[in-house]
């Protein structure tokens, strides 16, 4: 899985695809760090449109991202969560600490 990035105005969108698990760790971190370092970007969206599976280490990566985005004073939202992704996020009750759209 190689995440792609789209920047529109002050919104940076990380588009993930396929299976989002520990093997995506390095690329996901690099992509996110580039968005956090970009002063133009105020809001980061993680787009799950093309993700069909996500595991608990992916949840861990999202928690780390939330922490980093928070300390950079930016906002974060998880978008286009469908089926399996939605289910995993619901079981973990991530709706309580993440904006999910």
């Amino acid at each position: 899985m190689t995440p792609t990035v789209q920047i529109e105005g002050s919104t940076g969108r990380v588009i993930l695809s396929g299976q989002f698990d520990f093997s995506a760790h390095r690329e996901f971190r690099q992509v996110c760090e580039s968005l956090i370092a970009n002063p133009e970007v105020r809001e980061v969206l993680v787009d799950f449109q093309n993700v069909n599976y996500l595991d608990s280490s992916a949840l861990g990566m999202l928690l780390l991202l939330k922490e980093k985005i928070g300390s950079a004073n930016k906002t974060l939202a998880l978008v286009n969560c469908r089926d399996a992704v939605k289910q995993v996020l619901e079981i973990a009750c991530f709706g309580k600490i993440f904006t999910i759209r």
Partner: peptide, 11 residues
Amino acid sequence: VPSSNLPLGII
């Protein structure tokens, strides 16, 4: 009884 809480260790 579904999960209605975050896992431990987050908040």
